[in-house]
């Protein structure tokens, strides 16, 4: 197969658009694989995704099935992470919880990153009063502590996992808008934008096709690094009883339930806590690795 050969990807004179793009990804992928932290992070995230996808097959017990005769059992061969106050297997709940965590992270990223990206790019590209209005709104959001703002939104919208996602997304976009605006300002006066305007391209086309592609790499890095924060905010909301509602096995909510028994039955709160730490760490490592590969200042050299 021609497509599996190394020199096909690294060809200095690609013969098609596909090959040129594949080559770019191949080089970035190679750099990423040579970065040990990124590999560890990527493995953790891959593990999370697999766990979430295969939860019904991996989990030894049901996530919600109660067994009051087996309450608060310590970790053992039967229940690797012990059981909680309703006799539910904590390992199974942590495994199903991966689905909720992944959903929160993915939805928040899908909502807030494009929103921030477009607001920032429009603001930086047009400047003037558009910039003033959009950045004013952004500043208002930025000036409030994230968790408090999310709390206020959840309080207004009602507790629940969907509202928690919306609340976190609303608090996450201003940072992305700031980055996108700063990136846009660095090149919106450059000749290649001027040349494209001179071709008769519309503002929308220039923003979508020329400005946004240059902002995305730093945005991917930033979003990946923020994922840990998103997970923690979601867990915080869950801990306060404003995120996922029982009996959903959300990690933050599980810690909150385990708090009552933390002195005598430490495993109830600790096990989901480990899961949160591990996944946050995975996203941080991956984000750092991606920054090394995608950073525009280094990208020019490779």
């Amino acid at each position: 197969m021609q497509m599996l050969r190394r020199d096909w990807y690294l060809d200095d004179a690609p013969a098609s658009r596909l090959q040129a793009n594949a080559g770019r990804f191949y080089r970035a992928g190679g750099l990423l694989l040579r970065n040990p932290l990124a590999v560890v992070g990527g493995a953790i995230i891959l593990l999370l995704v697999l766990t979430a996808a295969l939860a019904p097959w991996i989990a030894p017990y049901s996530a919600v099935g109660q067994d009051l005769s087996a309450r608060l059992l310590p970790p053992s061969a039967q229940h690797w992470m012990g059981t909680d106050e309703l006799g539910r297997d904590i390992l199974s709940r942590v495994i199903y919880g991966a689905r909720i965590t992944l959903m929160i992270v993915a939805l928040v990223a899908v909502i807030s990153a494009p929103l921030g990206l477009i607001i920032g790019a429009v603001s930086g590209y047009f400047g003037g009063w558009v910039d003033k209005v959009l950045m004013g709104v952004t500043d208002v959001f930025l000036s409030m502590p994230k968790l408090i703002l999310a709390l206020a939104f959840v309080a207004a919208l009602g507790p629940g996992i969907e509202n928690a996602i919306i609340a976190i997304a609303i608090t996450a976009w201003p940072a992305y808008a700031r980055i996108a605006r700063a990136e846009t300002l660095t090149f919106c006066q450059s000749d290649f934008i001027g040349a494209t305007r001179l071709l008769g391209a519309s503002h929308g086309r220039i923003i979508l096709r020329h400005v946004l592609p240059l902002c995305t790499s730093s945005m991917i890095v930033r979003v990946t690094l923020d994922m840990a924060g998103i997970i923690l905010t979601a867990a915080g909301l869950g801990f306060l009883g404003l995120g996922a509602q029982p009996p959903l096995p959300e990690w933050g909510a599980m810690i909150s339930r385990g708090r009552v028994f933390i002195l005598d039955q430490w495993w109830v709160a600790t096990m989901p806590g480990f899961a949160i730490i591990l996944v946050s760490l995975g996203f941080c490592f991956l984000g750092d690795g991606l920054r090394d590969v995608l950073d525009p200042k280094q990208g020019g050299k490779s």
Partner: peptide, 22 residues
């Protein structure tokens, strides 16, 4: 700049390192 004008007149910039999208 305008679409009609684009068909009649074009420009080549001084710095070829800055006038092409990276």
């Amino acid at each position: 700049p305008g679409r009609g004008f684009a068909r009649r007149c074009q420009m080549v910039f001084q710095d070829p390192y800055g006038s092409l999208h990276p």
